[in-house]
Amino acid sequence: MSRNGGGEPLVEIEGVSKRYGSIVALDGVSATVRERAVGLLGANGAGKSTLMRVMLGLLPADTGTVKVLGIDASKPAWEVRRLLGYMPEHSCLPLGMTARDLVVHMGELRGLPRRVAVLRASEVLFQVGLEEERSRLIRTFSVGMKQRTNLAQAIVHSPGLVILDEPTNGLDPAGREEMLQLVRRLSSELGIAVVMSSHVLEDVARTCDSVIVLREGKVAATRAIDHSAAAVRGDMRVRIVGDPDGFARAARDHGLTVQLDGEGEDGWLVVRGGDADGVLTGVRDAAVAAGVGLRELRPAGPTLEESLIGAIG
């Protein structure tokens, strides 16, 4: 993936394979990560966590090479790991420590001087919304608070790249929403590049600039994710029950443009005219004004999900 072009790649993966006995976890994976936020998408067992652990130098690849921030991940692993942040998938926090102590400790383990680690622990706990709970034992935290503590420990040392393994796992809708916003902020506001794994496309689409789809240990697809204004423009395809010409006139009265695509009741009307909310409101009002019924309403272009559905499997 090289959508942004230029600059040193954050991660270069070349022909990486990894087997666990007879099980092939990674099979000749190659990818180059240049974007500030990249999602690793795939079903459970697709090889996402294994690839992340190889990137961290926690697992040696059977074949192939991985360079992270320009450093060979296999040797010396500790050299690259102190420049990386890692948020494991499963709960792995020491329950008997306070959030502040843990974050300070992890900062020191990643090379921060103690005084700096103490200062930065306050900063990152504030950033993840745990400044009030920093002195509480982690065992008293909710799942969402534990995940935010997990994220805080991953970024306390100002890493160039943070690797997030299923950060929304086990979170309720509100916690998931907060976590996705935090993850997006890492790359967009805090200047930390992100590699995030997930099996939920929406999570990746909302937080990342590109996606690498893994399937059965192989790269099945790579796509850029367009967050530009054009991408969020709300062009719609509409099928109606009733007079299409009447609907088109009413829609034009609401500032929309309508283009016919196909004939008869099975034909589609492509409606354009601003953002998604504006188009949807206009379509609703035009349908009421023209006295037609709406049979089907969908985005005009292929969605990211549609373009990846075959690759995800």
Partner: peptide
């Protein structure tokens, strides 16, 4: 301002990390 800032200062090596682990563990 309690804002997230980048840290570009010196980073300690492995021995400092080992010492940190030992100190935190023994105190606990």
């Amino acid at each position: 301002d309690v804002a997230y800032s980048r840290y570009d200062g010196p980073r300690a090596g492995r021995f400092a990390a080992i010492w940190s682990l030992a100190r935190w563990s023994s105190l606990r």
